[in-house]
Design a protein around this nucleic acid. Structure first.
Lengths: 141, 141
DNA sequence: CCGGTATAGTTTGCGGTACCAACTAATGTA
DNA sequence: TACATTAGTTGGTACCGCAAACTATACCGG
């Protein structure tokens, strides 16, 4: 198998998936970044720096992202009593509802693609990703 | 196989691939959009609307994208003699060189991931993509 | 030939994203 | 108590993408 072809396929696939996810986000009136934020907050209440690590963004970018989400009432900043500098970020009720809706919308957007995969391919995809795609990259920021 | 897990895997994979490609682009001092532009122009000299279709962008977005690339000397606008409104966009020599460098940089960024795939998986990935990911979506713009 | 319409592309204005550098405020430490 | 460190925000810049308005050229019916 020619390496270039595989690179192309990966690039095209990733573009397509991002695009589908972007559609789901747009339909809900949020950006891809906001969607990522909501997704991460579904099972976490991180502080800002932690969030920056998850999102692989500069802390100032996260500040803006959270700020805009807060304005929309999707998210709230909870000052930590133990340390006056720190803040925990968490979903509001409406943010949680939106996140849930987004999850199924994304699933729907990708349904066609997933259905085109054999069961074995699906298993191997999940395996490939869990074994080779770091959830959190080895700290570069 | 739980559908949600496959969705997650696809999302994570696509994010990771985009991120790696973004690294290659950043190392060369261009954005992901610019990289896509250069990639498309490697074997084409399209007009602006054509380019908008390829990139799935509004024509005004393409105007800006090409304009910025032109300022950097990566691309040039060639007015078509047959029609005073139209313009063909093509790579300059330095744009072509940059595009070539980017191609191998991207390949390098994705090498680890690709090496982790069995030959059979590589073949099936390429097949999955060619059969299920439209190169050009059925015209939505 | 001429006036109206269609088409290709640009410009303008807006909101969002992301970065870096500088800043503020709280904490830790010598 | 003075100094350094840390968490987070702010300000400035550049880029991206869209929609709406605009320019200029081409086309077409009479």
């Amino acid at each position: 198998m020619d390496r270039g072809d595989v690179v192309d396929a990966l690039a095209q696939l990733s573009w397509h998936v991002q695009s589908r996810i972007g559609d789901a986000a747009a339909a809900a009136g949020v950006s891809l970044s906001q969607l990522r934020l909501l997704g991460i907050l579904r099972d976490r209440e991180p502080e800002m720096l932690e969030l920056a690590r998850f999102l692989q963004l500069d802390k100032s970018s996260v500040s803006g992202l959270v700020g805009r989400a807060e304005i929309r009432g999707l998210v709230e900043r909870m000052p930590l009593p133990s340390d006056g500098r720190r803040v925990a970020v968490r979903l509001t009720a409406s943010g949680r509802a939106l996140a849930a809706g987004l999850e199924s919308a994304v699933e729907e957007q990708l349904a066609a693609l997933i259905d085109a995969m054999s069961d074995r391919d699906q298993v191997e995809l999940v395996q490939l990703v869990t074994e080779n795609v770091p959830t959190l990259p080895p700290s570069r920021r």
